[in-house]
Design a protein around this nucleic acid. Structure first.
Lengths: 204, 204
DNA sequence: AGAGAATGTAACCGATCGGTACGTACCTTG
DNA sequence: CAAGGTACGTACCGATCGGTTACATTCTCT
């Protein structure tokens, strides 16, 4: 009986192939960064809660900032997964795609533990342009902006840039505002109606 | 010749009446917090750049968090000043008032050193509800939300809550998004058109 | 069984964190 | 001029920050 039981679920295997500490560090850091903020979480807290030690962190990541950037890259992947999932739900119907995305966004933002977008939060936490994590976030937001504009164009909007940017503002508005209201009735619930109204107004 | 030269400008008086160090600390902290983020600024940096010493800080403020809360309270005052100034510009015309506020907001958000709303940023920096600064921010945002809803009602909106919350999302969207784009052509510029479209859509 | 990779142990580093005990210079008041 | 209160600075505190070292141990694969 080997210790690497292939029948057991992956996350319960005592020792899988390849680096394990790195993954635990990564996932622990991702959760802690999101819940408590990046600056509020020290490397000691990360390795402690991950059940590993500090040298393991620095064997897999050059620095804390490097770990932050890696986490944010994964967060970005998750964002695009959700975005594309809304696209796939309504092929060739950009309006329905965006409405679907905003509906999912509004639903997600309702949770009590919702803390908005980790990429947006990182921008707030790191005003310094030279920070690796900020660079990841900023590039992503530029990509998103272009994507929204293209989507507005596909809708046949009279002013695609204006509609795209308006959707951008709504998205960021949901991200930030959902963190500051504890009740179940957050402003973010109004976003679906708002985006529908905007689409109608900008698409003759 | 006394050292307290009444003819000299106030900020150059060697020793004025009452506490001087506290004001320098307060203003220095306000600027540093906004530019670099609250968590990124230590008390040593504050007193150093204010040209005073640390005990002076702790004689006027119980803790760093207390200083943060004090700064945020002043920031809130500034916000309402700008908000009311837009109201005063168009008495008895809530639509024009809000458009005026959003125009001012869009104009302010264009600057390269614009870092959004310090109150919103504080919420992002301090997920912990028990932080004094977060409490100031959160209460202010609740007040703003109610104010916006009342404004929507005064407009005769069909769904005042929805329009008020939609304006809330736009405002927060401008605050956050303006930090992540370095070019002059920020998404925030679309906010005036967006709010006009929303007002039109929600006010039959 | 043995080689090599991955991880843990146990320190340690200088810098900075928020916060404070204590001494000193100043201005006002008698 | 003497006294007292106020405003401020010097020097320091323990804790934590991000990061590093040398070395022992454990697991995996062949």
């Amino acid at each position: 009986m080997t210790k690497n039981d292939a029948d057991a679920p992956l996350h319960l295997q005592p020792y899988g192939p390849g680096p394990r500490a790195a993954e635990k560090i990564f996932e622990t850091a991702r959760d802690l960064f999101y819940r408590e903020g990046i600056r509020a979480v020290g490397v000691d807290e990360i390795v402690s809660k991950a059940g590993v030690t500090k040298p393991s962190l620095y064997r897999s990541f050059k620095s804390k900032d490097d770990l932050v950037a890696a986490v944010l890259r994964e967060v970005e992947e998750g964002f695009w997964d959700r975005f594309k999932s809304a696209e796939d739900a309504f092929p060739d119907d950009p309006k329905a795609q965006m409405v679907a995305y905003f509906e999912g966004l509004a639903a997600r933002s309702g949770g009590a533990d919702y803390r908005g977008c980790a990429l947006s939060n990182a921008v707030v936490e790191y005003p310094d342009r030279s920070h690796a994590g900020r660079a990841v976030s900023q590039t992503h937001k530029q990509d998103l902006r272009e994507r929204l504009r293209a989507k507005a164009q596909a809708m046949g909007a009279s002013d695609p840039k204006a509609l795209g940017d308006a959707m951008m503002l709504l998205i960021e508005g949901v991200f930030t505002s959902s963190q500051m209201f504890d009740d179940d009735d957050k402003p973010a619930l109004a976003v679906v109606g708002a985006v529908k109204a905007l689409i109608t107004a900008y698409c003759p």
